[in-house]
Amino acid sequence: MEVRTIKVFTTVDNINLHTQVVDMSMTYGQQFGPTYLDGADVTKIKPHNSHEGKTFYVLPNDDTLRVEAFEYYHTTDPSFLGRYMSALNHTKKWKYPQVNGLTSIKWADNNCYLATALLTLQQIELKFNPPALQDAYYRARAGEAANFCALILAYCNKTVGELGDVRETMSYLFQHANLDSCKRVLNVVCKTCGQQQTTLKGVEAVMYMGTLSYEQFKKGVQIPCTCGKQATKYLVQQESPFVMMSAPPAQYELKHGTFTCASEYTGNYQCGHYKHITSKETLYCIDGALLTKSSEYKGPITDVFYKENSYTTTIK
């Protein structure tokens, strides 16, 4: 009895394709271990004539594949690729409408935090270190965002349907971005203890939790000093293409032309909904596939993004 075979390709990165001759009487799992086709788990399936010449994702289970996976995804987590594939199996079914010149995501599976993050990423200057993220990001900007969303979920250790947080998501993504040249110098002034300067680099240099107003941050924000008295913390120097200011959701007025974009969060910790506000020729609110415009805006804002380049204080 002759062994019926077909020729397929296996890959971990969709760049390096490895030619395989597979036995049609055995499952993919018996031949390769966990195997995925377009995100779908085909591990328990036997090869079919229609699979001839198709590319299958496999887990990096030998040295060659491990090197290829690390170079593309910059992670050695053995569960990463499987999590990416199972997320992709959902995100490829989502709709990605162009809204006001940006790629958004039609609401499904509690994905409003991903839509808000995706919209924000198209408006701030950011370059990702893992080629996987950078490639998928370019495709997302062009309207094909399924891979990018699935990668975000995998890097953030999230599953489809789980509630997510924009600030946490951005923080994970910033860790995989090139923020080497970003720098922030802060000064804390206390009447009792004097003053202390701190220099922050990388992710810490672009994120701040405690106030939404970048102007206020430049002037000074009140913080408790270690001595128990009130101290003032203010920005001395900022070198970065953008800054992200966050605070627990509270009524906040966004003035046209003073910011790049913002995240609105309605609801409580267990259950809520994100919308995205962007400042173009007027203010726009993007909620999944829905767009509304207004000249002014007041609502429960939790993150505001500002364009920056270089700032030095005039406070002496």
Rank of each mutant, 00 (worst) to 15 (best):
H90R: 12
F259N: 04
H90I: 13
F56V: 09
Y284K: 03
A117M: 05
Y137T: 02
L88E: 05
H176P: 02
K298W: 11
K316P: 14
L126R: 04
Y269C: 14
F242A: 00
Y96R: 02
T19A: 11
L17I: 07
V99I: 11
S295N: 07
D77G: 05
T27C: 14
S310M: 15
G53Q: 12
L290F: 11
L179D: 03
I286D: 02
G53I: 06
L59W: 08
I124P: 03
P130A: 10
T312Q: 10
L119Q: 03
K95H: 14
N110M: 04
T314H: 15
S295L: 11
T292I: 10
D303G: 00
T169F: 02
I45V: 14
I105F: 03
Q20V: 14
K54A: 13
H51T: 03
F56Q: 03
T266F: 07
T282M: 11
T35I: 08
H48M: 13
Y28C: 05
Y234P: 02
S213T: 01
T313N: 15
Y269M: 14
E71V: 05
E253A: 13
M207V: 09
D165E: 12
Y36H: 06
A145H: 06
A177G: 06
C182F: 06
T5W: 10
T314E: 12
T11K: 06
V206P: 02
T313W: 10
P60F: 04
G220R: 03
V42N: 09
F56S: 05
K233A: 12
G33L: 05
T192N: 13
T260L: 15
L173F: 01
A87D: 01
A40V: 13
V236R: 04
T292H: 15
E168S: 12
S295R: 15
T10A: 09
P249V: 13
T55K: 09
M170I: 08
R184M: 03
P248Q: 13
F305V: 08
F80W: 05
Y274K: 01
F128H: 04
T282Q: 14
A145Q: 02
Y138A: 12
E264F: 00
N49V: 13
E144H: 11
R141C: 12
E2T: 11
H74R: 11
L151V: 02
A136P: 02
K316M: 15
L37N: 11
N187G: 11
K298Q: 09
E308W: 05
Q196F: 14
Q222E: 12
E308S: 09
T302A: 13
T76R: 09
T282N: 10
A136V: 03
E281L: 02
L283H: 00
V188L: 09
K298L: 15
K298T: 11
K158D: 04
A87W: 04
R167F: 03
V243A: 00
D109N: 09
G39R: 06
Y73Q: 05
V236Y: 08
T199R: 08
